[in-house]
Amino acid sequence: MKKDNSQLIMTLLKGRTFIVLILLIIFFSFASPSFLSLNTLTMVAKHVALYGILALGMTFVIITGGIDLSVGSVVGLVGMLAGGLIQEGLTIGAKTYYFTVPAIVVLMLCIGCLIGLVNGLIITKLNVAAFITTLGTMYICRGLANLRSNGATFAAIGGYEGLGNVGLKALGADFMGIPAGVYVFAILSIIAAVLLNRTPTGWHILAVGGNEKSAKLSGIKADQVKIMTYVISGFCAAWIGLINTAQLSAAHPASGDGWEMNAIAATVLGGTSMSGGSGTIIGTIVGAFVIGVINDGMTMCGVSEFWQKIIRGAVIILAVVIDQTQRNLQAKMALQARNESK
């Protein structure tokens, strides 16, 4: 009887983020009558996509026991570089290069990967703590973003037909009523879930996070795996840089400031352990939705921005406390099961 009880609690705990999400949606539907409308849900999804995509990359990094604080700055830097390429082109010597939007997207994704690669190399090859490394690249990228235009904004980024660089707006537009960012979020989520759960690479990432030493001893190239997670994170951040710029039709060097924290919050809410070794993509997606629903819901109910911060912080701490409780309970149950089988 007692066992059944604890099993029920386990199930509830495992699905807690999802339950919280449902409760939040129900709560806000009552608190603000217009919350449960197609328009609002589309808007929430649009916002969720922004830090959801960042959180996807963050999930991989955190599973290996690392952290990537640079993603917010990468968003700003990529936005500025993309905006600059469209508006001013790339001038080398006496020639100016104007890239088409698909080429700019590819280039910016490469930039994101490159920053991730630098992060990963410094962390693994020079043995610098991930927190410090990415804190450093966070500042560097933000500085570079400001340097690109001397702190000014690239406004009205539309491109010119004659230069063949129109079309970035598509990344910020709606298709069949759903924002493009949400499609990108969905596609990247599927790729991430398959990568993590269905490929050897995914198992390697989980193994490195669980126990790096034994992963190494069993022949996994732990350094390569770690570097790859930072590359993935940079890749995701570059997408957000592009989508954010497209949605605003402008690039500001301070955009994306602090977004890494939303991504970390979504990841942790989704049940990914900060100490590494466990985490799921679906958890992160639900976590991102929880953050999104809390943010937009509170705004719609007229809760002040200051209170929003306090509530958001409390929710994150609560999530980790419950996470810890679950782990303890799990360990206890495993012990119980072992004793019974004896």
């Binding site: 100016t96 104007y98 890239f99 088409t100 698909p102 590819v106 004659g162």
Partner: peptide, 23 residues
């Protein structure tokens, strides 16, 4: 990537944007 990007670029003389944009 290099092949794709180099195929997707318009190279013009510096400062001649006006001829292309009409601005």
């Amino acid at each position: 990537i290099v092949a794709f990007v180099s195929n997707q670029v318009l190279i013009i003389d510096k400062g001649t944007e006006g001829q292309y944009t009409g601005v």
